[in-house]
Design a protein around this nucleic acid. Sequence first.
DNA 1: AGCGATCATGTTATCGTTATCATCAACAAG
DNA 2: CTTGTTGATGATAACGATAACATGATCGCT
Lengths: 349, 349
Amino acid sequence: MTKTSDGKVGDSKAGEAPTMNDVARRAGVSAMTVSRAMKEGSHVSKATRERITQAINELGYVLDQSAGSLSSRRTGFVAAIIPSINNSNFSDTARGITDALEGTGLQLLLGYTNYSVEREEELIEAMLRRRPEGIILTGGAHTPKGRRMLEQAGIPVIETWDTPADPIDKVVGFSNGAAMELLVETLAAKGYERFGYIGGTTARDTRGSQRRAGFVRALERLGLPSDRVISFGVPPISMEQGAQAVVSMLERWPDTQVALCVSDLSAFGALMECQRRGMRVPDDIAIAGFGDYEIAACCHPRMTTINVDCYGIGRQAALKLTQTIQGPSAETPERITRTGFRVIEREST
Amino acid sequence: MTKTSDGKVGDSKAGEAPTMNDVARRAGVSAMTVSRAMKEGSHVSKATRERITQAINELGYVLDQSAGSLSSRRTGFVAAIIPSINNSNFSDTARGITDALEGTGLQLLLGYTNYSVEREEELIEAMLRRRPEGIILTGGAHTPKGRRMLEQAGIPVIETWDTPADPIDKVVGFSNGAAMELLVETLAAKGYERFGYIGGTTARDTRGSQRRAGFVRALERLGLPSDRVISFGVPPISMEQGAQAVVSMLERWPDTQVALCVSDLSAFGALMECQRRGMRVPDDIAIAGFGDYEIAACCHPRMTTINVDCYGIGRQAALKLTQTIQGPSAETPERITRTGFRVIEREST
DNA sequence: AGCGATCATGTTATCGTTATCATCAACAAG
DNA sequence: CTTGTTGATGATAACGATAACATGATCGCT
């Protein structure tokens, strides 16, 4: 225990969490030295550092980063907003972000919108209040106010999972429409002609509507009928809703050869329902999904789908973010990164 | 634009984000009044509030909560640590937490450990640096240092998904062992006698090992063989690993009547693999899972499993947290809340 | 020996908000 | 006409850390 110039002696009173000054007193140094000792790559002598470390352990001191960030003007936060954490495509993206942030001293602040732009707007504001050093969004559809806040925030903004026509700042994504077109073309080349589409009522899920639009576009180009579209349920549609939708489809267009679904989850529901009804897949009806979820590779028959590298989207978005934050010293990243997608042909088509 | 006592005039220079003082100047009030106007339930006259709101919009001002929380000693954070965000059981819990936090002004700071206590320890420290007002953990297994930090943090700590023998503070969970025992008993009552178990190599996943222990316990009590245990892969085991594990099981103990799996995901993999091999479920072999994931209700045949109300665990944990934070004025919550579980019998057994 | 560079540490002044106390006006109750 | 209460606002001082600058001390090189 040490006397200090301000006359106080010893530790702070119990009950109150210790501050850096308490540590400093106990180690017989100034707070600034403690601050230095707690940061990598700053000059503190070995002996001093040891005394400080000991004081920290004895007091159970934990750095208060909220105070530090006010002073340093670096919060160490990156915000990410995804539609849903229960969707493994998006949680893969979140995982990609976290993993790419590992070791950078940046922490992920995650929020989800339930596919609602209004909720997104609220979240954007809540996030910006925390002064993140960058923000990663899903898709390019925002409320006007949300967009304005993002533009004025003065931090890098990355839109993902999409290629918006008029991006706010940077983009890591792919064209959901083009991906679906590719799937249609691939299957048409195998001889399928009567395609059906299963998706949600489209208003909320912009990626879903783009996939549907791609479906229609590709069929029109190929001169095939493009009207067999079932919109069922509020996006994101569940396995169960996929099952119900395929029933509607088979009632309305019994001779449908192949059902494309907005995601693997609904596709799986459809697949199981068909089996329940004694139909053979792909002989009686073929089914394909979108997203290459774990389930697609494992179900029986294994499901044809489109892999879109969700994890990679997250990784690259976070990478682009850190590059931008680290400033123009490092090479400035491209404004738009297009991530790949590919058709995975399996047994269901 | 207004002159103020400190001689400065007008807005801050462009490029810099506006502060509360900039808003105050523009609205012709003090910063304190702006602060009040931005908080619910404080006395600000209607006219003043309108001027302030206008100034906020004109400047595009966003409150800096990191500065505010330093002053008010309330960060508005709740930390939650889960093993994985890609597991829908845990992301359901996270969703329960977020939903229960809605409207309380508290925001969720989420982290995941990949089932590693070392990673958990790092995360605990990283979270505590942000001074959360409470912390929610998964399970009761922590490193000694992690546990110490939690005990000293001076905030409510809630352990979930488990009923630790020696809880740190509060608990919302159930006995994974007892749940598995119940499943065994239910199936034994239907006449099954030769049970097999599929799980991961257990070191990391404590909930997994408790389930396995419950499996063994129940069979021993019933006087049935309890040695048919396949440990395959690092937890959490995937669908694919479930498929491979069931193959090992059938090789080693071809007359197994029912395979219980550590989770629905591995159970689903096993189910599909059996179908691929032309086996009929449940006639040739019965399969049951754990967790009542969406997939269990939708696959064909529908899967018997245990529902454990993941979402409810999150909700109740968050509820308990907010009650504790709001202080002893409100009724103090129970220290231990046991959440229910129930066997869902479906077609796979 | 002289001089600049690097190291180890301390002092001071913020960062942007909110708690607290103070002030003054308006108004109700006695 | 007091006196107390409530409402609306402002001034000031934290909150706990770090940036920026300052001070000696040490060291290597000419």
